[in-house]
Amino acid sequence: MVTPAHFIALAVILFVIGAVGVLVRRNAIVVFMCVELMLNAANLAFVTFARMHGNLDGQIIAFFVMVVAAAEVVVGLAILTSIFRARRSASVDDANLMKY
C-alpha cells in the first residue's frame, strides 16, 4: 500500500540530492538543474499534501511554483549566456570579480 508518507520520503531524498548537487557542482548550468530538482521535490511534497488533506490548494501552490521556476530559468540562463559571452566560462568559480 503506497501511502502519502512514501511520496514525502521520496521528495525528501530528491531534495537532498539536489542540495548536494548545488554544493558540489561548479558548472553553473548544472547548478541550475540541481535547483530545478529541488523545486520539483518541493512540488511533489505539495501535491502529496493536497492529496492527503483532500483539497486542491497544494496543487495550486505547485502550479505557481512551476510558473516562478520557468521565469527563474529564463532569466538565469540569460545571465549565464551573457557571463559566458564576456568570460568564455560557465564555471561558478570564474565569476569572482565582486569578491572582496
Binding site: R25, N27, I29, F32, V73, F84
Partner: peptide, 16 residues
Amino acid sequence: LFLFVLMIVGISAADS
C-alpha cells in the same frame, strides 16, 4: 531551454 543554452555555451564544457 537548458539544452539550447548548453549548445550555445559549448557542449564540451565538462566540469573540472
